[in-house]
Amino acid sequence: MQKGIKFRIYPNREQENLINQTLGCCRLIYNKGLAMRKEAYANGEKVGYTQTSAMLTALKKCEDFSFLKQADSVALQQSLRDLDRGFVNFFQKRAAYPVFKSKHNYRQSYRTLNRKNNIRIVGKYIKLPKLGYVKICQSMEVGKINHVTVEHTPAGKYFAVLNVEFEPQPRTNNGDCIGINVGIKEFYSDSNGKTVANPQYLENSMRKLAREQRRLSRKQKDSNNREKQRIRLARVHEKITNQRNDFLQKQSTMLIRENQTICIKDLNVKDMMRNHKLAQHIGSAAWGKFFTMLLYKSVWYGNKIVKVPTMYPSSQTCSCCGYQNPLVKNLAVRVWECPNCHAEHNRGINAGINILKKGLQMQSA
């Protein structure tokens, strides 16, 4: 298997300039390839990766584009491969039509391949094509490196995302089965009666974000002070993202380690985000990313994820007698009593129990 590992790198001034130049060259080649394809399509012709690659070769021979020779040639080819993959995804209805890349986007990246071990970690440094040895903050051991993505973030930091070979070792767990019901106030409630509070990192930082945004809006356009304030604002957003990712990683790993079968509801988070009253809170909770982590970790360690149908009324159904109470459709109802068997239910925990029952029923069917 393969996985991505992200390390922060600390290039010197010369290496920073070369990284920024390579980012600009990759963006230029991508845009020229996209323009070439659009023009050919308008003329009724067909252009693929072979034609755009020949265009790159011709540009390098032109004096006006001689600066392309200073960039990593593999990275330039990979930008054209990314463009080709974008069109494949578009025609197979997996993505939108490719658009031109802008230099005003503060998150830029390029990818290069490991050929003849030209990408490797040596002590506290990583060797990258054209850049040489760049200082790296390595937090874990890595296997064979297939390719690396050099990323420049809006906060002004540089990262190397390594795609490495990975041999997951099966982990022993308690063999338990659990049902998970995600929410906004409680991040999730499970069938064991446990609730995990939503840390609400975004909501807790809204005042600070608003203050930094006001300061940014008062700065003169294109000034150095505005750029400094933009980075301060970006670092606040970055901290929120890091806090959320750390929380999701820890919770998903804990569930995988303790349970063999995890039953979740197959929620369409994208459609739920269309509710403008709840969209910010749903996005802050990041249910989709949480489910994605559970899925790929279950593949690594041999766990079983069972998805219960979206429309299954897990919150309205009494987990004791099976009575369906239509009054519980109101999200404000957090605790309710079953009119049939008079059992008192916590909305989240009751839903977790029903999700577990339905998931086990689907698994045995």
Rank of each mutant, 00 (worst) to 15 (best):
A285S: 14
K270Q: 12
R274L: 05
R257P: 00
N259P: 07
D266S: 09
I264K: 05
D271W: 04
V269P: 01
Q260H: 15
M272H: 00
A286D: 07
L267K: 03
C263Q: 07
R257S: 07
L267V: 07
W287L: 01
L267G: 05
K277H: 15
H281D: 09
L267D: 03
M272G: 01
M273D: 12
T261Y: 13
I282C: 00
A285H: 00
G283D: 13
C263V: 00
V269D: 06
W287Y: 15
K265S: 05
T261I: 14
I256W: 06
I264P: 04
Q260R: 15
M273C: 15
E258Q: 13
M273S: 14
Q260F: 11
D266W: 04
M273V: 13
R274E: 12
W287K: 03
K270W: 10
A279T: 09
A285Y: 02
C263P: 07
Q260A: 15
K277A: 12
H281E: 10
A279L: 09
I256D: 10
R274Q: 14
M272E: 00
N275C: 06
M273N: 14
N259G: 05
K277G: 09
N275Q: 07
I262A: 04
I262S: 12
M272D: 00
M272L: 10
Q260C: 11
L267R: 06
D266T: 03
M273F: 12
K277Y: 14
I256L: 08
G283E: 11
M272K: 03
K265L: 04
N275R: 09
I282Q: 06
K277P: 04
E258Y: 02
G283M: 14
K277T: 03
R257I: 01
I264F: 03
N275T: 04
G283H: 12
A286Y: 03
H276I: 01
G283I: 01
R257C: 08
I264Q: 08
K270R: 13
L278D: 11
I256F: 08
K277N: 14
D266N: 13
D271G: 15
H276R: 14
R257E: 10
T261C: 06
K265R: 05
